[in-house]
Design a protein around this nucleic acid. Structure first.
Length: 292
DNA sequence: ATTGGGACCTGCTCGC
DNA sequence: TGCGAGCAGGTCCCAA
């Protein structure tokens, strides 16, 4: 599922492609996911692609913003210009896109692009098997307000040990649930919450306000480290995971996962076994021997 | 106020 | 072999 490293990888990919391009037309196949008239963005030129937490923002020349949340299975795949009638075919299958060509079974929105002179400049496909993701066209003001409602981005300078300690002190919910609360810290989802807590050797069930300053610092460093390492490997395309980059390639950080989806397997740092429990209704993986 | 649980969705896996 | 139940999970919404 796209979390901070995956969404940032997508942002970087799109930032190389989209700025300077213009929207020719938009085809909305799932109105629920983009409940505005497609014509609202026609003719707009893209000036930037931004991100906070797990949300992407395509900024237009008129300051309006197309805010995108991929939720669990959303994909943004860019296909360069094709001959008319030709379908995009990749050298490797695109998970959940309905095969190795686009549009696929799970394509929900198609955005046709043009270069500055109005010629076809490729197509952006929004695929989403489970249809939880969404796109919204917002004014700059509404976008800023939506971003202000998110907690500090986990890779920003604003998110540091002191910030995390303060957040943790404010709740006695399980520490894992709290670090996944997007209103407190944005960008951390189930994979990296599990991985960061393992690296920091902290039991995910502990009440957030039971962590010392020292433990908060350790956890903060673990969060930053795991997010940065994953980003270097273009994110995690785990089993059952729809995440791919805009060019269709998967990420590689799944090779580095220490606990996520490793229930029953040997802990990588002790003789124990990775255990799976449920916390806040979500699968939680940890090593009961290492994590206290 | 905080917290827990269901709803939203689809495709895949599993058991009968 | 075929079918239905169960499961996965980010976020929102409601209820206790």
């Amino acid at each position: 599922m796209p979390e901070l490293p995956e969404v940032e990888t997508i942002r970087r990919g799109l930032a190389r492609i989209l700025p300077g391009k213009k929207i020719r037309w938009v085809k909305i196949l799932a109105a629920k996911q983009f409940p505005q008239p497609a014509a609202a963005v026609n003719g707009r030129t893209i000036v930037a692609v931004k991100r906070k937490g797990k949300q992407l923002a395509i900024v237009f020349d008129n300051k309006q913003v197309l805010l995108i949340h991929l939720k669990l299975t959303g994909q943004l795949v860019y296909v360069p210009r094709l001959q008319s009638g030709q379908r995009a075919v990749f050298g490797h299958p695109i998970p959940f896109a309905g095969g190795d060509s686009l549009p696929g079974r799970s394509t929900r929105i198609i955005i046709s692009l043009a270069d500055a002179s109005g010629h076809d400049a490729g197509t952006l496909f929004f695929n989403d098997v489970r249809m939880f993701g969404w796109l919204r066209l917002l004014s700059e003001k509404d976008w800023r307000q939506a971003m202000a409602e998110l907690g500090a981005d986990a890779l920003s300078r604003q998110f540091n040990a002191a910030y995390l300690y303060k957040v943790l002190q404010s709740s006695r919910r399980a520490v894992k649930v709290v670090i996944m609360d997007q209103q407190k810290i944005s960008g951390i989802g189930n994979i990296y919450a599990n991985e960061a807590l393992f690296r920091a050797r902290i039991d995910p069930r502990r009440p957030a306000n039971s962590l010392s300053r020292k433990e908060s610092e350790k956890l903060c460093q673990a969060i930053k480290a795991v997010l940065q390492e994953s980003l270097k490997m273009q994110g995690t395309s785990a089993a059952d995971d729809a995440y791919i980059q805009p060019d269709g390639r998967p990420g590689r950080f799944q090779q580095k996962l220490a606990v996520y989806q490793r229930a029953g397997q040997k802990c990588l740092s002790c003789s124990g076994t990775v255990k799976r429990i449920e916390l806040g209704g979500r699968g939680t993986f940890f090593c009961p021997q290492c994590q206290k």
